[in-house]
Write a protein that binds this DNA or RNA. Structure first.
Lengths: 330, 330
DNA sequence: CTGAAAGCGCTAACAT
DNA sequence: ATGTTAGCGCTTTCAG
């Protein structure tokens, strides 16, 4: 099953076999045929490991994501895998589960596996020095961050302009006459902070009041949404619109509202974020912000590919999100 | 950055360095310290590729799934990755997109990459000879099928008993007095067929009428559900319960029902399948069948691991699903 | 306890 | 056009 046996069966040297396999050098048609016959007969498969060792490249990209089960990441990974495949790369997947510790370990493992490059999907949290390992890894291979950002020679980022995303929602709501707008979010990630920033900035420039009690941080998930709504009631809120940083949060809010018998969108308008499948499953259907994961992932693969090809590539790349209106805000 | 440089810096041979790295053989404490110092200083990382070449194993498992974006697959992949990681394996992910053609190619690629084993996630469709490549691949490495089945020496399967899953729903519905029960499904996959079988079998043994017009095949997705409902109306159906083969289908059905002003569950009962996040987002919330992806994936990784360890393992393993009652069927 | 050397399967000069 | 050969970085006998 090695190249030697093929060579022997074809009555040529291993170099010749290598040549026909890789279409390199030139070989006489008759010789080629002999070799190809042997290849078929032995059902030969080249050993990519051995090849990698000599050519010093694995055609493999490492992908780190905190959790594939999140549909946002799932989408990103799906596209990344597809795109890299088209470009001739394999993909090794690692679920890091968020924390920097596991991420550090996986980065190391991927480095040992000699991946040609990596893409880190999703927000990096702001730990003190928590990102040193990324910087370190980047000395060995190029790294692209999808929806996160970090400064470095060999680090590239592709982000969705989430600040603008939320801003657009605020503006849109203001135009519809809403003055009391609440913002509900979960995590303090890179994009989480950008969204929050977008909210406050836009509220200010629209001249709308920003009340502390209207900005609510809650747990992730549908129950997080429910709970946030409850807290909003506690403070006797008089807002007429709620923006959630995630669709799933908005789904919880919608549930809570319905339960209280409040009409959406008549008595309260709700906006989600991600334009995930969830936004189509709720009743009423959820208006949301399409943060373009597909475009982001495509861009990320393109960037990494170009870097790998030795091209000069911009270190910062941004994609602009779009509002999608459904029943919860018409 | 190779083992040679470490050896040189430590003033020992590469064999010794190898020994301390792998904790193999025995080395004098002082020597070990010298080596470890050099290791640190050079920030050395072993080259897994080179190692794989000699030990003839990569500690990598290939995973083929048709589409990670499907939450069912996403869950499976997440758990698989976690479990294998715990066992010391990496995971290469391939999205095959369903068809056998791409799957054949990916199988080959994974073989070249010398994965130690593979798990194929999801249903294999019934093509004529469409599965020969799986059989072929299994001569090189063990393969476990998650929720699919194929006979072979080196092939193992872990399936959810979906036939029983749907049967349970039927029985449960019959107990509640429903006699007219409709079944809506999308694809003819391995598990798709099992579910359908479960429906007809259970209907028969419950002595309930099986009408052709009540068994509806439709497209996948939320619109598939909507459309199926429409067809059900077309035939002036008088059924009082609908079972869908997927939550997302049920979501579409629910939407359609609400639109028509029909009360769920009072006028019509609906049951989904998968117990996905979707079932909690709909209004009313969807009763569903928990098909235990988590358990399935855990079992799959265990099976493959044991095979890799040279243990004797059962070729057929089944996990039993459970009903989860929510508002759409109380 | 440590080192020398063979070899894993392949590619890429360098010869011929 | 084809063959010979030297590694790629590592593990693993086999000597010492």
């Amino acid at each position: 099953m090695s190249i030697y046996e093929v060579a022997q069966k074809a009555g040529v040297s291993i170099a010749t076999v290598s040549r026909v396999i890789n279409n390199s050098g030139s070989v006489r048609p008759e010789t080629r045929e002999k070799v190809e016959a042997a290849l078929k007969e032995l059902n030969y498969r080249p050993n990519a490991i051995a090849r990698s060792l000599v050519v010093n490249t694995t055609n493999t990209i490492g992908i780190l994501a905190s959790d594939v089960r999140d549909s946002y990441y799932a989408n990103a990974i799906y596209i990344l895998e597809q795109e890299f495949r088209k470009l001739g790369y394999h993909v090794i997947l690692c679920n890091t589960g968020g924390g920097p510790e596991k991420r550090r370990r996986y980065l190391g493992l991927l480095l040992e596996k000699k991946v040609d490059g990596m893409v880190l999907v999703g927000s990096i949290f702001k730990e003190k020095n928590g990102n040193q390992h990324i910087l370190d890894a980047s000395t060995s291979v190029p790294i692209v961050l999808l929806n996160s950002s970090l400064e470095g020679d060999n680090i590239y980022s592709v982000v969705c302009d989430d600040k603008t995303g939320v801003s657009k929602v605020v503006v849109s709501l203001a135009l519809r006459g809403h003055r009391g707008i609440s913002y509900v979010y979960d995590v303090d990630s890179f994009s989480g902070l950008a969204k929050l920033d977008g909210f406050t900035t836009a509220m200010k420039s629209a001249g709308l009041p920003i009340k502390k009690e209207w900005i609510i941080q809650t747990e992730s998930g549908i129950d997080g949404g429910r709970r946030a709504l409850k807290r909003l009631e506690d403070v006797k809120s008089t807002c007429t619109a709620i923006i959630a940083s995630e669709d799933i949060l908005a789904a919880g809010i919608l549930k809570g509202l319905t339960q209280k018998g409040m009409k959406v969108p008549d008595e309260m308008v709700v906006f989600g974020y991600n334009d995930s499948i969830i936004s189509q499953c709720t009743t009423p259907e959820l208006s949301s912000v399409d943060n373009k994961v597909g475009a982001l992932a495509k861009e990320a693969s393109k960037v990494l590919y170009q870097v790998l090809q030795g091209m000069e590539v911009s270190h910062h790349n941004v994609v602009v999100p779009e509002l999608v209106f459904r029943e919860s805000c018409d």
